[in-house]
Amino acid sequence: MSVIAIKPYVGEEKDRLENFHGAQILFVGWEDHLIFCAPFCFALPPDTKFGDVVGGVLPGAFSYHPDWAKIDWAKAEWFKSGQPWKPVFERTLAENGLHHKDVLRFRTPGLTGIAGTCS
């Protein structure tokens, strides 16, 4: 049983893709940088190029951190739902196989936050 209820019912999924006016939700977290208390939530059209996310969207969220400017994107490690994953920067979110509410994390080897404390 997927719900304990007085009679059978189907819940309304509040966050269906079609409710986001053509965008899909993408979550992105930066490993070892907990100055950002939680991963971020973005609403982006699926035809956004991955490189535009990294170059145009993420800086608005993450560039406050002094480590941001030191990132070598060629060395960054990516994870999708916790599993190693490789994005193609020239391709869109959809072409990279990213679906609504997927969660990405990136790790930037050598960069471990304020005074090396993962902050």
């Binding site: 979550f27 977290g29 100055i35 950002f36 208390c37 939680a38 991963p39 971020f40 939530c41 973005f42 608005g60 969220a61 406050y64 969660v103």
Partner: peptide, 10 residues
């Protein structure tokens, strides 16, 4: 002063 203005994941 740090003001985070990006929506977090819940």
């Amino acid at each position: 002063r740090f003001f985070n203005k990006t929506i977090p994941m819940l």
